[in-house]
Simulated scan of single mutants.
Amino acid sequence: MAGGTVTIGTRGSQLALWQANWVKNAISGHHPEITVELAIIKTRGDKILDVPLAKVGGKGLFVKEIEEALLDGRIDLAVHSMKDMPADIPHGLCIGAIPEREEPRDVLITRSGRPLDQLKKGSRVGTSSLRRSAQLLHARPDLTIVPLRGNLDTRLKKLASESLDAIVLAAAGIRRLGLADRITQTLDESIMLPAVGQGALCIETREKDPRIASVVAALDDLPTRRVVMGERAFLNRLEGGCQVPIAGHGHIDEKGYTLTGLVCDVDGSHQIKQALTGPEAGSEKVGLELAEALLAEGAGEILERLNADAKQ
């Protein structure tokens, strides 16, 4: 491949820059003849830090401005956390590559060093994720959930500055930034099912850009792609965003592709959760079928109610 420059669009947080630099180094490793540059783009989600995401538009807040830069040619590709990607991708863009996934689960970080089941009644736990808060309340209805926004470093500082007893974060971000020693407990999926795509990176590209497609092709991990696209098919069918507590996590083993999905009331009182297994190559079909199964169990009524509440 001829040389030239490739510009990566990214948010400016410490974690986003780590992720973008990882992709930059991976591209340079496969294509040393290419110069790779980063372009930091501030998104609406980075500017609004005092309001829960569900109140200001959900997931698209972290990608819209970057996608606009990709569409108009200011950047050649974008690096996102897959869990920040809305179910629908703008016309003209596509998921060009999904590298091998990091640990997808959530972690609990407590000031006392106590795990979830040993936290005192009424303990203040920080999170602005409805998915996390609903599952926490399902497991421990006696906890007090405190809204917590900001980048990873900010949220870690708020553990002490806002008198919180614990916070819940994605394991992937903590591990990528070398902070695994801060983890009190990695939360089992039976307690906290991860967000769709959590722990995976999304390398977003223009659909009709063969040069960039060939640049990122070597970064795509097929098993991770199949797992994540099955999760995203599940999310897409449920039309889920940050306004509703939806979780989904798949894995591949000798039985094929198994996807576990969940829809939950905000207060954790009503939780619909199922798993479905199918062929590895048919992961998106499994995702659609699992969504239909949850809808048949009453997930549709929960989603309609929560979406109606979000619009008020």
Rank of each mutant, 00 (worst) to 15 (best):
A171S: 15
P52I: 05
A139Q: 14
C94R: 14
T258V: 12
R226C: 03
T258S: 11
D84K: 02
D267G: 09
N236S: 13
E231R: 00
G45Y: 04
V146P: 12
I191P: 10
G240Q: 02
G250L: 01
P223M: 08
P52E: 13
A139P: 05
P210N: 07
G73R: 14
A171L: 04
K24R: 15
R176T: 07
S269L: 08
R175L: 10
A310F: 06
A78R: 05
Q271H: 01
L15A: 09
V266I: 15
D50Y: 00
L136E: 13
D84L: 02
V286M: 04
P210Q: 01
V6C: 11
L193W: 05
E102C: 04
T260H: 01
E67D: 14
L177V: 07
A233F: 01
R237A: 07
C202V: 11
E189V: 02
E100Q: 14
V286I: 13
A16Q: 12
S112K: 02
T205I: 15
L15D: 13
L15R: 03
G250Y: 02
L137D: 11
E162L: 15
R11Q: 12
G300I: 03
G150W: 02
L152W: 01
I89G: 01
R149D: 13
Q185D: 04
R111K: 14
L17Y: 06
A139E: 13
M229I: 09
C264T: 05
D209I: 03
G173C: 07
A2N: 10
R232F: 14
E239N: 12
V79C: 08
K121R: 11
D265H: 10
G4L: 12
T224P: 10
L295N: 06
S128Y: 00
G29F: 10
I66H: 10
Q274L: 15
K255N: 13
R206F: 01
A134S: 15
P194Y: 00
V79N: 05
L116R: 03
N151D: 15
A293F: 00
D46K: 07
M82D: 13
S128H: 08
G230Q: 01
L159K: 02
L119C: 08
P115E: 11
P32R: 08
D50V: 06
S123T: 06
R44Y: 00
L290K: 05
V36M: 03
H251I: 06
K208W: 03
S269E: 12
C94G: 10
V51E: 15
A16R: 08
V263K: 01
C264P: 06
